[in-house]
Design a protein around this nucleic acid. Structure first.
Length: 269
DNA sequence: CAATCGTCCTGCGGGC
DNA sequence: TGCCCGCAGGACGATT
């Protein structure tokens, strides 16, 4: 499922494929995509950026396209030479198709349709983004900021809180579990039970794990792909989807907040 | 305030 | 062998 590193990878790759190029036609093929997107052309995308797990396209018309991939959203870019001879380029579970003036194409696919693509005015966009917690990789997110943030929810479950987008942005089920394994902290702990030493280690681990995810272009579990195909981070997972931890201990599986969670009862206390 | 539950959707795996 | 059922899960709203 695309989380911060997966979305960041897609955004970086999208940037040098589509920025500034003229879009002459958009086909909207499913209701998870705002029908208004098909009425914009011709237009250009001025900037692509990420906030939490959202991808935001800033258009030259002054409006914004806000996209969430859900669990199974994909972007697939196709050069003109790969399309030649085909009347329409089809991908399984295609929900929208952006056609560029130079003959290339961007396909947006979503198998389970948990995602969305909305056309918004700047004020509407800001309203959605204002509900999100801080970006963990931004410089302004200091250890002290993290410590202060944690004091707001002392009684809440730690893992659920790390995945709460209004608390901290971009962490989902994979990176929450990986991060907790590396600091040796059980996902069952309450936020307020962390020592100041554990808070610092957790801060470092969150940033390190997310950066590793970006370095390997995301974890291809479920059907995640970036614009160049599969990521590599799935090869470096310690506990997510595993039976044994790196030290060969048997992992425990449980549901937290309705989400599958595996952790090592020996390494994580 | 925190946790849980239902909802959206579809492929897949288990069971018979 | 083949079919049916139920599960997984990000975000959000409603409920406990």
């Amino acid at each position: 499922m695309p989380e911060l590193p997966e979305v960041e990878t897609i955004v970086q790759q999208l940037r040098h494929k589509i920025l500034g190029k003229k879009i002459i036609k958009v086909d909207v093929l499913d209701a998870i995509v705002d029908a208004g997107v098909s009425k914009l052309s011709p237009f250009r995308i001025k900037e692509v950026y990420r906030r939490a797990k959202y991808i935001i396209f800033a258009l030259d018309t002054g409006k914004f396209i806000l996209t969430h991939l859900g669990m199974t959203g994909q972007f697939f870019f196709v050069e003109k030479s790969q399309i030649e001879g085909k009347k329409c380029f089809y991908q399984p579970h295609q929900v929208a198709k952006f056609m560029f003036e130079d003959g290339s194409l961007l396909s947006h696919n979503n198998l389970r349709k948990f995602g969305s693509m909305q056309l918004l005015e700047e004020k509407e966009l800001q309203k959605v983004l204002s509900k999100l917690g801080p970006e963990p990789l931004e410089e302004s997110f200091t250890p002290e900021k993290f410590r202060q943030l944690l004091t707001k929810k002392p009684k809440a479950n730690l893992k659920t809180t790390l995945m709460d987008q209004s608390f901290i942005a971009g962490i989902g089920n994979i990176y929450a579990q990986e991060t907790l394994y590396y600091v040796g902290i059980s996902p069952l702990r309450k936020v307020g039970s962390l020592s100041s030493e554990e808070v610092k280690k957790l801060y470092d681990s969150i940033r390190h794990t997310l950066k590793e995810g970006i370095k390997y272009k995301g974890a291809s579990v479920d059907n995640y792909i970036n614009l160049e195909g599969q990521g590599e981070f799935q090869k470096h997972l310690a506990v997510y989807g595993k039976e044994y931890c790196p030290k060969k201990h048997s992992l425990k599986k449980l549901a937290l907040g309705g989400r599958g969670t595996s952790y090592c009862p020996i390494c994580q206390k």
